[in-house]
Amino acid sequence: MSAPVITKVDETPAITSLRRKDLLGIADLAADEITLVLDTAEAMKEIGSRPIKKVPALRGKTVVNLFFEPSTRTRTSFEIAEKRLSADTLNIAIASSSVVKGETLADTALNIEAMQPDMIVLRHSSSGACHLLSRICRSAIINAGDGMHEHPTQALLDAFTIREHKKRLQGLKVAIVGDLMHSRVLRSNIHLLTKMGADVWVCGPPTLIPTDITRSGVRATTRVDEAVADADVIMLLRIQLERMEGAFFPSLREYFNVFGMTEARLRLARPDVMIMHPGPMNRGVEISSEVADGPYSVILEQVANGVAVRMAVLYLLAGGAEHETAA
C-alpha cells in the first residue's frame, strides 16, 4: 500500500503516531501530538489539490459518522476526509427526539459496534458523550463536538490555518470574542493555543464568561478593544438568539454595538490580523458583513483546511505510517 507523502515544513516531529485510541479532546493531547497532526495535515492538504483526490490509506476501514445534532459543515468535512482516504463511510443522523422515545446512546453505540466499524465520529449535544462511548466501544472514537465541552478537530483546523499564515503559534496574540460559556470551540482552542504557547485573550459579556476561565492560562476581559489590540488573530464565536431568553444580554443589536467585530475595531489589531469564525455566522451580530467578507477573513480557508486536518486525524488514529507498514 502506498503511503501519502508526508512533506515536512520544519523539523521532524519526534513522534509518528498519536498515543491514543480516541480523539476525545485537545485536553488530552501533548504538544508534540498536536504538531504531528498539523504536519500530517499539510501532506493531506496536498492530496486535495490533486486531480485524483484519493489515497488508499484507510482502504477496508469502516467509519461511522454518528450525528445526534444537526451539522452541515462538520459532517460533510468528515465525510469528504474519509472518502479521500478510501474508507467506507456511513452516516447516521439521529434527531434527539427519536432518542427520547428510543434507545440509549450506549445501546445505539453497542449496536453499531456489533457491526465491526473501525471508527465512530460522534457529534452529540451532551458534554462527555464521547467519553461514555470511549469506555464501552472498541472502535476509535473521534469527537466531532460534544455539548459545551470540546470540538477538537475545529481547534486543530483553526491552528492549521493560523500556522499556514503566521508560520507559528508561539507568541501570537489570539483574541476570542463571543459566547464563551456555551462554546466547545472555545474550550478546545484554549487547550490547543495555550499548549502551543500563544497569548490567548477571551472576551464577551460577563454573563457569558465561564467561571474561573483565567485558571486555563488565558486572559479575560469584557473590553473588546483591549482584547483585539495588537491581536494577530481574532476569532469570533457564534451568538445564539435564544441566549437573550436566558438574560445573558439584552438584545442582538446591543450585543453588536458592544462586542460586534467591525472594521473600526479591526484597526486596533495588527495590520496582518486574521479574522476567523467556526461558523455558522450571524452577520450583523458577532461580526459585520464587511469584516466577514473583507480581506482579513480566512473563514472559508478554515472550512477548506478542515478536510485536511480531519484526514490527518483519521489517518493517525488508524495507526499512521506504522499501520500501513504492518498492512
Binding site: G128, R184, R187, T211, D212, R215
Partner: peptide
Amino acid sequence: YIAATLGL
C-alpha cells in the same frame, strides 16, 4: 472551574 472546563 471544573464544570466550566467540562462544559457542564
